[in-house]
């Protein structure tokens, strides 16, 4: 059985510069090991997709990079996770500062039940920006970047919950952009959206990848093939701990996988 994936060939090969890096990373929830020995270099200003069957720890892996796993009681990380060669699990690292640099978009659009405007300025306000004029500028710029400005510029004062699902997700992206991060983590950002909204988000991701380092978790392999430059395939081992099976340029992973398990997965034999 052969599956044809449309791999965008016009993408320049990712730069060799590494933005994020994990080295022999292990993640535990209490006694349960969720991730085992994952080493991975995420290139700068490119899109890296994490794929794999559900439950293999894709989201947990993604959440290593902004330390969202910290919020889970009993979570423990061994090994190194680095951003620009700085270990983010070091005691001296300010988590708040880290999350400013590493933004995150969630699976389900989760705008706050406030106005569109207040949603976008939530981050900047927390980081000390109070000048109304400056904030208005940030809102416009972020919404433009998120390709949402034209649709909402007349209803900035309205509740964000009145927007459609796709608009809400782009608002969440704008909310992240307003903080001016360097990295954007996306945890299955389109899984709650219809196909048209999904395509818009994918376009947006491509545009953003010129300036930002993007890591996206997706269960949709077409999507991974369409948007990503690099792809990593994760799988569960016997004890349900996630491990990295294969990692490489998307074109290669999808057309010429080195590992039998990768091939089985992308040709749809399991998962």
């Amino acid at each position: 059985m052969s599956v044809n994936y449309e791999v965008l060939s016009n993408r320049a090969a990712p730069t060799s510069e590494t933005k994020l890096k994990t080295e022999k990373v292990n993640l535990f929830y209490g006694t349960f090991q969720a991730l085992r020995n994952i080493s991975l270099d995420v290139p700068k200003q490119a899109i890296t997709a994490i794929i794999g069957p559900s439950g293999c720890g894709k989201s947990s892996f993604l959440r290593l990079f902004n330390r969202m796993n910290d919020l889970i009681i009993g979570a423990r990380v061994a090994g190194a996770v680095e951003i620009d060669d700085i270990d983010i699990y070091d005691k001296d690292v300010d988590v708040v500062e880290l999350r400013k640099r590493v933004g995150m978009v969630f699976q389900k659009p989760n705008p706050f039940p406030m106005s569109v405007f207040e949603n976008v300025v939530f981050g900047p306000r927390r980081h000390g920006k109070t000048n109304r004029h400056e904030l208005a500028g940030i809102v416009e710029q972020s919404l433009r970047q998120a390709a949402l400005w034209d649709e909402v510029k007349d209803k900035l004062g309205q509740s964000a919950l009145a927007l459609s699902g796709g608009q809400q997700q782009r608002l969440c992206i704008a909310r992240v952009l307003a903080v001016e991060p360097e990295v954007i983590l996306m945890d299955e950002p389109c899984s709650a959206l219809d196909p048209i909204a999904t395509l818009r988000i994918e376009d947006l991701m491509r545009n953003l990848s010129d300036d930002y380092t993007i890591v996206i978790v997706t269960h949709n392999m077409q999507q991974a093939a369409r948007v990503s430059d690099m792809a990593a395939f994760l799988m569960m081992e016997e004890d349900r701990a996630g491990t990295l099976v294969e990692y490489g340029p998307t074109s290669q992973l999808f057309t010429n996988p080195k590992d039998k398990r990768t091939e089985d997965y992308i040709t749809g034999r399991f998962g």
């Binding site: 902004n66 969202m68 919020l71 708040v96 500062e97 880290l98 999350r99 400013k100 933004g103 995150m104 969630f106 389900k108 989760n110 705008p111 706050f112 939530f122 981050g123 927390r126 980081h127 969440c172 909310r175 992240v176 903080v179």
Partner: peptide, 11 residues
């Protein structure tokens, strides 16, 4: 979700 979104924005 709202707490996570807020933390992820660096609050």
């Amino acid at each position: 979700e709202f707490r996570e979104a807020s933390y992820a924005l660096g609050a």
